[in-house]
């Protein structure tokens, strides 16, 4: 048993694929139509054999309520590791990404939080060197 896949709920799969690849820079791994939706996964070009992230349609009203409440409370839905939070902050900010938390030291890690334009807040963290 291993953890190879994680998922994030998105309000629109096309919009999500555009943001996760075009803005964040992840690489599309799968994009297969399944009924009304698509099975979409992305991986990081820095770790293509690492865990994949599935961009799940947020079609369940219960999930939607949860996602919106989390967002409004400024709670990140998930977190991605980066080598340099400040550099990522500058790169993403320049691309129009909205940050709800600018880079700050939180104990041993440095973090920042941004909106993924699909209904989620994402935390990026830089582990101590």
């Amino acid at each position: 048993m291993k953890i190879a896949l994680n998922s994030i709920m998105v309000d629109d799969q096309s919009k999500a694929l555009a943001f996760y690849t075009g803005v964040l820079g992840f690489v599309k791994q799968h994009d297969v139509p399944v009924g009304e939706y698509r099975w979409i996964t992305v991986v990081s070009p820095e770790a293509p054999e690492g865990a994949a992230l599935s961009l799940e349609p947020n079609a369940n009203p219960a999930g939607k309520t949860f996602q919106e409440a989390l967002f409004a409370q400024k709670i990140p839905a998930t977190a991605f590791e980066v080598a340099d939070v400040d550099a990522e902050f500058r790169r993403l900010k320049a691309r129009g990404v909205v940050f709800t938390r600018e880079p700050m030291q939180a104990g041993p890690v440095k973090i920042a939080v941004f909106a993924d334009t699909c209904g989620n807040l994402i935390q990026i963290y830089q582990p101590p060197r």
Partner: peptide
């Protein structure tokens, strides 16, 4: 309702799945 990775089963069955 398509959630909770239920799409994965459908994707694996799809001829386009690699």
């Amino acid at each position: 309702v398509a959630g909770c990775l239920s799409l994965l089963a459908g994707a694996l069955a799809h001829p386009n799945y690699r």
